[in-house]
């Protein structure tokens, strides 16, 4: 429980104590930060308006320095809309209005602790496995509704231990692989078409989707987390015509890659961000391998 008001902290501590919760207290954001580095809390309830480190700044520091999964409930009486957006972007789990509605607070705590236990059980389960494999088959006609990067990111954050730098690089790789499979392999868009505005591009995609052969195509996205080797293998396969990947690989290895027209930039990024990149089925299938072990350079990311 974090609030600069001793009276509020004491009364909420008493209420939560009666409800069976063990509560630790802090009277400033920096004091709370110090404590969460030392103790494994189930969740944090924090006031937004505090002198020194505000609730939002505290939340930002928690996400940056500590744990993306630690639930933080923010308490506030007034809040600008932009602050709301910022708090959600930083991963606030819930908001409680002041003066406190204790029934609402306890129901929010119960719900978040239930979710955390669920998450921890799954994380423990996946941690005990030698390998965990996931496959997603995505129909082209529904592709625009599927936020694959977010789903992948959520899986990795919740169930596996991955440093922020490795996760960031993995997210770029997944985005490149999926985007290539959709834009090139499935829709076969030209450079000119790809440079169109969002609305104009959507019109082109809608037109392509009128072709039943394209509409019925699928993109398969799979990843395998190998706990023994501490690495991940990501594979994306499309049902397009493939491409001359060997000459592209030769270009990537030998040439500078900042050409403005953008040929092969995505592949170059994949090549540099992964430990191994393999093409199969005439380029319709691409597979990368990447270590999940954080390097020293991960510190401070």
């Amino acid at each position: 429980m974090v609030d600069d008001s001793i009276a509020i902290v004491n009364s909420l501590e008493a209420i939560l104590g009666i409800s069976g919760y063990k509560v630790d207290t802090a009277y400033s954001g920096s004091d709370a930060l110090r404590k969460i580095h030392q103790i494994d809390y189930d969740l944090v309830i924090c006031d937004i308006e505090m002198p020194g480190l505000s609730g939002l700044e505290f939340l930002g520091r928690v996400r940056e320095e500590f744990d993306r999964n630690l639930d933080v409930i923010l308490m506030t009486g007034y809040l600008e809309h932009d602050y709301f957006i910022e708090a959600i972007r930083l991963g606030a789990s819930d908001f409680i209005r002041k003066p406190i509605d204790t029934k609402h607070m306890i129901s929010s705590i119960r719900e978040l602790i239930f979710r955390k236990q669920n998450r921890d059980e799954k994380s423990e389960f996946f941690g005990h496995l030698d390998k965990a494999a996931f496959t997603f088959e995505m129909p082209a006609k529904k592709f625009s509704k599927l936020g694959v990067s977010k789903v992948f990111s959520n899986y990795m954050r919740q169930y596996f231990r991955v440093g922020p730098k490795v996760l960031n690089e993995l997210l770029v790789c997944v985005d490149e692989m999926i985007y290539n499979a959709y834009i090139h392999g499935t829709l076969n868009l030209s450079v000119r078409e790809r440079a169109l505005t969002h609305e104009a591009l959507q019109d082109v995609i809608d037109k392509r989707m009128e072709n039943p052969e394209i509409r019925e195509r699928k993109v398969t996205f799979a990843f395998v987390v190998d706990n023994l080797q501490q690495c991940i293998e990501v594979c994306v396969e499309d049902e397009g015509d493939g491409f001359d990947f060997e000459s592209w690989l030769e270009t990537i290895r030998t040439e500078q890659i900042h050409d403005i027209e953008g040929h092969g930039r995505g592949l170059a990024m994949l090549y540099h961000l992964s430990d191994e990149m393999i093409f199969e089925r005439e380029g319709r299938k691409v597979k990368i391998k990447k270590s999940l072990i954080a390097s020293d350079a991960d510190e401070g990311y």
């Binding site: 922020p164 960031n168 690089e169 997210l171 770029v172 985005d175 490149e176 985007y179 790809r194 440079a195 900042h258 403005i260 953008g262 930039r265 995505g266 170059a268 990024m269």
Partner: peptide, 16 residues
């Protein structure tokens, strides 16, 4: 936190 090649492509086309 990161930028994919599509984002970089937008910046480079603008740059040009």
């Amino acid at each position: 936190r990161n930028i994919s090649s599509t984002g970089i492509g937008k910046i480079l086309l603008f740059y040009k």
